[in-house]
Amino acid sequence: MNITVKLFGILQEKRFNKLQTKYTEKTTILQVMDEIGIPQHVIGVIFVNGRYAFPDRELKEDDVLAFFPLLGGG
């Protein structure tokens, strides 16, 4: 299935900003994190299609997965 993975802030460093890629059915967010090498402790927030998600969630066709470090501003 087609999945878009986006990284933000410090997570972009030495990785990528945005990647369109294919995963097998029932791939979880945790499996994606392992594959691209993002340890859990550096992640502040995970979104799937702009809504909160947790690592055990299984992805679906055309999901947009976004990882943010712990961040602030405003």
């Binding site: 986006k6 933000f8 802030g9 410090i10 502040g44 927030v45 979104f47 702009g50 976004a66 943010f68 470090p69 712990l70 961040l71 602030g72 501003g73 405003g74």
Partner: peptide
């Protein structure tokens, strides 16, 4: 991580992407 690293490095505008992604 926010007050010690992310705010100094990127400034308050670091919020743009996350607020935008959140719709």
């Amino acid at each position: 991580p926010v007050t010690g690293y992310n705010l100094p490095k990127y400034g308050t505008n670091l919020l743009t992407n996350i607020v935008n992604e959140a719709g």
